[in-house]
């Protein structure tokens, strides 16, 4: 309607929030299944049921009274991640690594058990979920594949694949930068890197303002750089999309140095910035994908 008035040519088929909600999310994702994606514990149960690779769950704590007993299961591990099942924006996530002396270390600081228990208690009592209670997920800590450190050596980069009715539509790689404080989110000063779905290579870097052919903290060009395990990741995304009763998904994958690709998160309302990163509208990507099949 307005595009006609303003003489805007949307040749690339860019989809806005209105259209994403009305044509992609509402018809394809039923609200009753949202929790399968929003709750990390439920997501992982479903992934494990279908034998889809994901970080190994050490334990799930749902009550304060279980903390001591269940923590005992994790004490022998070398590294782990503590997460709220319903957290948002990465709030409440704590990565713990064991030092040579056998102490737990988080963000460069030694933490004792009391600290850890306090953190778990606040997760379970819903501090990070805007809720009265939540579950605390303790899982294996991902070690990023050396492929990522060739581009930028900090934080945990991940791939985002958009799937519509079990078909991958578009993908990008999100990477932290020296300005993003370890976070890979585009609106937190991370960068998005476009992905050529057919070739399995990286295309261009988008920092929210302009396009480049290299990561802002690394002058080496990345365009055309092949992505390791690309076909495995596409297969994982398809298997995940098949496992979930949700037809429009943003699937987040990481590549572990030892175990290869793993599904980290599933999103029912994936953002639209991916269109900018790939310089292509979702409408066009969907058309291309369905024509070629």
């Amino acid at each position: 309607m307005w595009d006609k008035w303003f003489k805007i040519k949307n040749n690339l088929g860019v989809i806005g929030l209105n259209r994403r909600n009305l044509e992609l999310i509402y018809p394809h994702n039923q609200r009753k299944y949202y929790s399968l994606a929003d709750d990390k514990v439920k997501t992982k149960e479903l992934l494990q049921k279908h034998n889809i690779a994901c970080a190994e769950t050490f334990t799930v704590i749902t009550k304060v009274s279980e903390i001591k007993k269940k923590w005992a299961l994790c004490e022998g591990k070398e590294a782990l991640a503590i997460k709220p099942a319903n957290g948002c924006g990465g709030g409440g996530i704590k990565i713990l690594k064991k030092t040579a002396e056998g102490h737990w270390k988080s963000g460069g600081k030694i933490v004792n058990e009391t600290h850890i228990f306090q953190h778990i208690t606040s997760i379970v009592s819903g501090l990070y979920s805007m809720n009265s209670s939540d579950s605390c997920l303790i899982e294996e800590c991902i070690v990023p594949h050396p492929f990522f450190s060739e581009i930028y050596d900090e934080g945990v980069p991940d791939f985002r694949l958009i799937t519509l009715k079990e078909k991958p539509i578009m993908a990008m790689l999100r990477m932290p930068t020296s300005k993003s404080d370890g976070k890979a989110n585009l609106h937190q000063k991370g960068v998005g890197i476009g992905v050529d779905m057919k070739k399995g290579t990286l295309t261009q870097v988008y920092d929210g303002k302009k396009y480049r052919d290299h990561h802002p903290d690394n002058p080496n060009k990345i365009n055309g750089k092949p992505i390791p395990y690309w076909n495995t990741m596409v297969d994982l995304a398809i298997k995940t999309a098949e496992a979930f009763p949700l037809d429009y998904l943003g699937i987040d994958l990481v590549i572990d140095a030892a175990k290869g690709p793993q599904v980290m998160e599933v999103n029912v309302r994936p953002g639209l910035g991916i269109q900018l990163v790939n310089r292509c509208g979702l409408e066009r990507a969907i058309k291309l994908r369905y024509k070629s099949v």
Partner: peptide, 15 residues
């Protein structure tokens, strides 16, 4: 289902 006016700004590089 049209683009919001602020989205026209956001997606300007693609439009």
């Amino acid at each position: 289902i049209g683009l919001r006016w602020t989205e026209i700004l956001r997606f300007k590089p693609l439009l």
